[in-house]
Design a protein around this nucleic acid. Structure first.
Lengths: 343, 343
DNA sequence: GCCGCTATCCAAAGCGGTTTGGGGATACGA
DNA sequence: TCGTATCCCCAAACCGCTTTGGATAGCGGC
């Protein structure tokens, strides 16, 4: 399907060389000829074969994304969709293809090396980094640009990443609740083997200790971020002898669960109990309006995808431009879910 | 990066031909030689270059997915993530790559034809088909296998698709509510230019008319399926002079919104008001447990992704195997959100 | 008329694989 | 001893594009 460069050249009575140069904007071709070639190309709906082109140039014009699916619970992190949508926009505009691999997390390392060894991609995006993540060192030894969405904590050598300031976000959120008089503040976190969750916890703990509040293990949870997880956390923690007066949630989904759990107990958000959540600004769970439903540390994961893609493309075009890093700050927006500690 | 076939052959004192045949399991090569080649290949971490291979064979070994992003509201449909996770599994196992394009819906047609003209893919998956969808006819003229996740209604020529029985699902769900004595049943649907939403509406209307119930335009809504949309629908419809006693929602996200809207009005699901929703079984919004929260027509979109991918691969390997179609039935599971019409 | 330049174009050699069409041993039968 | 079938292996062409290294022609200057 589709005409080839050779056919196009033959139909024009020109050599493939000239046609190639005409279309790629090289100077050594007559302006009139170039126009003639261009017209014929669009008329014949000519598009250069990607595989041939990249074989000849040595550039794949593609970026690889490997999205891990935890074998244990088979959860697909809902933020991937928005992140990828953001990144995809940038790739399309730059003429890059996005190639996606969905793999069980055990096979992730091999998925990367396979992709690279086959020359299928010019760079890779690393999703969902763990606190101790072997992938970074593996990729560092593979001589290909890569960028983490997030960071990892056990790697000393510099690498490129884009992250949000999880530590500061949760420190601020916790401090905000403390300022409102809360002292029993629960943390309903994601799995703390994930780097982002670990940093959030640290921010939370630091704010508590800054206020002289002893952390209570009964008020800290970690799990995959589903709605029922939030529900159970609310229900169970509120039955403690000394229940929390405020909750800190790691995602909107969890916050919805909290809200349901609390409202089933007859408690009203912002009056009886406070909730602050992180909000990735997923398009189908908007937290806006005149007064947002939740007080939230918010940062668009879609925008993160866009920026990360731009950074990675920069690394691809100029591998020497050094490790690129960006720390996005979140904004703490006030919603209806928080209020002063009652009692 | 990575050794080439030629280098590997040279290091073994063999010709590229023999090495290629040894690795690809052709019979005309000595068993001992084959083993020697295999060992050397794994030792050198040899992986054939994808672009070269597919250029030589003429097969791209890749499937294209074009995911549209509505320019108006910039919503990324959350079911994409799970569908793609399911499809991705199948592709990896079959040695196919998944290439993804995220485009504004206006550019969608050109995204497909570009992908195909460049020879980047062997087949394409069509997402989110509309009632009147120009893409199907376009693709039919392009001589490449394609498969719709869903169906479209204005195309007479046969084509391949995998869909759930939206009509029957919503007919059953509506009938179920009618059997419980409900007569004021609201439909909180997705955008009805989408084929799935249109079929759901038809199923709903048919069940109503079968019971001699006149549909009420005030009880029917359509919009992009966000949580606040569900919330507003509940709040506003319950203020009607003759409010609904039951709701039919097109997604879990919308159902969550309904639930919040109703509970803010002091109404309890299953007792004061009934809600039935469609449930795509997204991993982070599980609707299971001893008694699921929502009565739901359910069908795993992840499984749909797996099956669709298998069908498409079948079409790719044997283009003559004719249009393939599969209609998945949903199961109606009873949850805590429904009860007999009060009063 | 010859030289050197510039402006245009082209032939051919890759890129890294697969595949066609042999070709040299070795073994076997006559 | 020769022919021939079988087993292994290889040289070379090809996939569709880019790119190197000329080649040709036109033109002004001496």
């Amino acid at each position: 399907m589709g005409v080839t460069l050779k056919q196009l050249a033959a139909s024009l009575g020109l050599s493939p060389t000239t046609v190639s140069r005409a279309l790629n904007g090289f100077p050594e071709v007559n302006a009139a000829t170039r126009e003639r070639v261009r017209a014929a190309a669009t008329k014949a709906n000519y598009h250069p074969n990607t595989r041939a082109k990249s074989l000849a140039t040595g550039r794949a014009q593609a970026i690889g994304h490997v999205i891990p699916v935890s074998t244990s619970h088979e959860i697909v992190n809902p933020i991937f969709a928005d992140f990828i949508a953001g990144a995809g926009e940038v790739y399309s505009r730059a003429g890059y293809e996005m190639i996606l691999r969905v793999v069980a997390d055990a096979d992730e390392a091999s998925a990367y090396s396979d992709l690279i060894a086959r020359g299928a991609v010019d760079g890779v995006m690393v999703h969902g980094p763990l606190v101790h993540d072997p992938r970074v060192e593996m990729l560092a030894g593979l001589d290909i640009p890569f960028l983490l969405h997030g960071r990892t904590s056990n790697v000393t050598a510099p690498y490129s990443w884009l992250d949000i300031n999880n530590h500061r976000s949760f420190h601020r959120a916790t401090q905000f609740l403390i300022d409102f008089g809360h002292r029993r503040i629960a943390l309903v976190n994601g799995l703390e083997e994930m780097d982002f969750a670990c940093r959030r916890r640290k921010g939370y703990l630091e704010a508590l200790s800054g206020a002289g509040i002893e952390p209570d293990p009964f008020l800290m949870r970690q799990a995959e971020m589903t709605e029922p997880y939030g529900y159970r956390a609310a229900q169970e923690m509120m039955q403690l002898p000394d229940p929390p007066t405020a909750f800190l949630a790691s995602s909107m989904i969890v916050a919805y669960g909290l809200r349901r759990g609390l409202s089933d107990l007859g408690l009203k958000l912002g009056r009886d109990v406070s909730v602050v959540t992180h909000d990735d600004e997923l398009s189908y769970l908007p937290n806006d309006g005149d007064v947002p439903m939740f007080t939230a540390t918010q940062s668009s994961v879609r925008e993160a995808g866009r920026r990360a893609a731009k950074m990675l493309l920069q690394l691809v075009t100029d591998p020497e431009c050094g490790p690129l890093t960006e720390l996005m700050e979140t904004s703490l927006v006030l919603g209806a879910s928080t209020g002063p500690a009652s009692r």
